[in-house]
């Protein structure tokens, strides 16, 4: 087992070494990315502030609590830019041109390969500013974070990453059959955007959809509630189990799908 883990870490290191050296050919990107994160974030903060200036209360969430939700969204958005998007959007292309062959022929878990093959450093500014924003709200609110709530936050954040990843991966997997039809990137990115504000701020009908049909609640609101100490332990456990179930399902679905792979012909 330890040997296996070692080789997986070594592999991921090799993966990321190659992709970072490739990405860093384009230095201007970092500058553009930082500008765009600052622009996006201040835009969203401005919209939020309009709500609160007008005395409007977003589903019982205070200003600083809503900012935490926005910060978590920013973190997930950064992860999407760095890992999910560059990897999962390639799956469709690899099915299309048949280079998936080279992945399937390697003695490596193909799902791990496809999900972590490349990393793009351009999401890092988002991830950092998300964490900074959370720290800032706690400093401003003069609240002290307990180790316990940090732990709960980490757990729920991990489960939200797993949920987002699994859904995305499942949709990308369907390209084995449909080859071109789905554009999973657009679908999942817009799902994520809905998590920019607290879910309870949405009307009841949408709230239902976002909780039970598209699990957006689990993406941003649940981690926010965890760090703010507004959450029950049972919901945290449910969120964890739910994410693990989805992860398991994505793996089963992938293994099922590749038996239908026809490989683009020569």
């Amino acid at each position: 087992m330890s040997k296996l883990n070692f080789s997986i870490f070594r592999l991921i290191k090799a993966f990321w070494n190659t992709s970072i050296s490739k990405e860093l050919e384009y230095r201007l990107n970092l500058f553009i990315e930082i500008i765009s994160v600052i622009g996006n974030l201040s835009g969203s903060l401005f919209v939020l502030s309009i709500f609160y200036k007008g005395g409007f209360n977003l589903g019982g969430w205070t200003w600083s609590e809503s900012v935490v939700v926005l910060a978590i969204y920013t973190i997930l958005d950064g992860l999407t830019t760095s890992i999910l998007q560059p990897n999962l959007s390639r799956i469709v292309q690899q099915v299309q041109d048949g280079t998936l062959d080279f992945v399937l022929i390697k003695p490596v878990n193909s799902q791990i390969w496809l999900s972590l093959r490349v990393i793009s450093p351009w999401g890092i500014p988002s991830i950092i500013s998300g964490f900074l924003l959370i720290t800032y709200t706690f400093i401003i609110g003069k609240k002290i974070l307990s180790l316990y709530s940090i732990l709960l936050f980490c757990l729920t954040l991990i489960s939200s990453i797993f949920i987002l990843y699994s859904l995305w991966f499942i949709i990308a997997t369907t390209s084995i059959w449909f080859v071109r039809i789905w554009n999973a990137n657009e679908v999942l990115r817009s799902v994520l955007v809905a998590g920019r504000y607290p879910i309870s701020a949405f009307p009841a009908g949408l709230r239902f959809v976002f909780t039970f049909l598209l699990p957006i609640t689990f993406l941003t609101s649940v981690p926010a509630e965890a760090i703010l100490g507004k959450i029950s332990l049972s919901l945290i456990i449910f969120s964890l189990l739910f994410s693990l179930a989805l992860l398991f399902l994505s793996n089963k679905f992938w293994n099922f799908a590749i038996s239908f792979y026809t490989s683009a012909s020569s």
Binding site: S7, L11, A14, T18, S21, T99, V108
Partner: peptide, 27 residues
């Protein structure tokens, strides 16, 4: 499997980088 019409080498990097990657794959 070697295919004349498809390539596994990373286009923008020297072959050496692709070799290192494969070396990691096969431990």
């Amino acid at each position: 499997l070697v295919m004349g019409q498809k390539q596994q080498l990373i286009w923008d990097l020297p072959p050496m980088d692709s070799f290192r990657l494969n070396a990691a794959v096969y431990g």
